[in-house]
Every structure is written in C-alpha cells, then in structure tokens.
Design a protein around this nucleic acid. Sequence first.
DNA 1: CCGGACTCCTGGTTGC
DNA 2: TGCAACCAGGAGTCCG
Length: 294
Amino acid sequence: MPELPEVEVVRAGLAPVATGARVDRVVVLEPRSLRRHAGPPEDFVARLTGAAFDEPQRRGKFMWLPLSGDDAALVVHLGMSGQVLLRERDAPIDRLTRITIDVTHPQQRPLRIDFVDQRIFGSMAIDELVPASDQPGQSIPSQVAHIARDPMDPLFDDRRFLAALARKDTTIKRALLDQTLVSGIGNIYADEALWAARVHYDQPTRSLSRPRALTLLAEVRLVLGKALAEGGTSFDYQYVNVNGNSGYFSQSLNAYGQTGLPCPRCGRPIVRESFMNRGSHFCAFCQRIRAVRV
DNA sequence: CCGGACTCCTGGTTGC
DNA sequence: TGCAACCAGGAGTCCG
C-alpha cells in the first residue's frame, strides 16, 4: 500500500542511478505484471532494451522513467505490494521478482533493477508521453494524464480543490481517495488525516465548512510530510526501498489499524467500519458528522 | 454524476 | 493437524 511518500522515496532513490543509464537487458518473469502495457511482453522488452532513461518523474502514486528522445516512458505503479530494488548483476533473484532490468550508467558499475511484487497489483508499462493538460510544455504518460497533482506539489491548486469539494455530491474520504481530485493519498494516510482534523470519513463534502476543509488539507500535508521526512532519512542507497510498510510503521499511527485501541486524543476506542471495500478507522467521539451548513 | 459491486492477486490469519 | 474461508486494498470497469 505504498502511497505518495513511499513512491517518492523510490523515485528519489532511483534518480541517481537511473538518470542517464542505458538498458542492457530486460527479463519479464511474470507477464501479469505488464497488465497496463498495451502490447505483448516481447514488445515491452523490445521497446525498453537499448533505451536510456531521463530523470524519474512522479504524479500521485504513479512513477515514470522517460526514455531519452522517444516521447515514451517506463511507467511504474507499485500497487499494493510493489518494490523496486537495486541489485548487483549477479545477485540471486528473489522469488517474488516479476521483472528485471539490467542497466549501465556511465559513472557507475552495472546494476540490476528488480521489480518485486507479491500480489501483482502493481505493474510496469511502456506508455506514450502526451502534453500535460495542467501545465503547458510538460508531458505525462497517457495512462497518468487523468491523475491530479498531489497536495505537496507547489502547483497544487488549493482553491480549485476546495471548490470541487463544495461542488461535488460525495463524501470526504471518497474525495480524498479520488486520484482525479487530489493524488497520492491512500487508505492509511486518509484515515490519519481525517483523525487529525476530527472529520468523519462519511461527512458530505458539501457540508464541510471551509475552515474544516482547510484544516483537513493542512493535516493531509502534515501526515504526508512527516512520512516523507522519515522515508528520506531511512532510505538506503543500496536498495531503493521500499516495502511500502517502512514509512507507515515507523511512524506512529493514531487511527489506521488501531481498532479497539484508545483514541490518543480522548481515550475512547477507535472503531472500524467497512467503506468502499476497505476499512475506515476513526474515533466515533472525536470524528462526528456535522450538521449541514446553510 | 454517483455509488456499489466486482475484478485483479497472494500470503498471512482465523475458524472449524 | 489440515484445510478452507476470509482479509488486506489501488485502480479500473460496468451497471443501475
């Protein structure tokens, strides 16, 4: 369940070794990891082999490595359990490795980039770059074009996000998880930010007052920022993190997964309700649905 | 436009 | 002890 901070740590860790590196060899061990690739595995291998990478980019939970001079990119999504690991060329291949990419960087020894993914919800793909609709001159993989900016992005438009909340007929956690409204937030950080802002997950967005919406947005940034800082410090150059868990569990969680434990604020037990096919953890006392504002 | 159900998937945990 | 059922959820699709 890598969310924005985990994906960003992977991107930043990959940057120094991938940027300018050339692909020598690609092995697809698990074709299902190419679910988002438009062609057969052979096509993926052919398009990647011999290509060179430009600096890795990220939008929400999607990451991509542009192929130099090709108007295409290697798109990576970690899904629930994806990892990107840097290995020596001759290192043993882990059982859950789905794709291996041998690269040579002009200034570094040859390495192997392993895409490891237990549940195969993640994927790699070669995708065409198209002009980004939200910034002239920028390009973005076609399958990422619909993803909104994340709240840590300097170009994230607070006013536009708040306006969308006021306009849309939906509830707040649904909106936080809607990657076309705001990206990078998953179930864990959504629950944590809602707890911190004392907002009930099922509060209709239209009835969320502006001050509370602003508080929530600030808490989203705080929780993401804290995880980013921790991910950055625990990052190991040798092994582009991340098993996706590292960021979360070193950080103290107040609500997510705390079912039955006392709310750190009021001491009443955290409850769990099923919502959107997943768990919502919250304090039923601190986080109550507020009356509709007129 | 919206929400709910379903799909993909595996390994750890629970229950009989 | 053994095995089946269940649970975790990011993102896309389909349908009412």
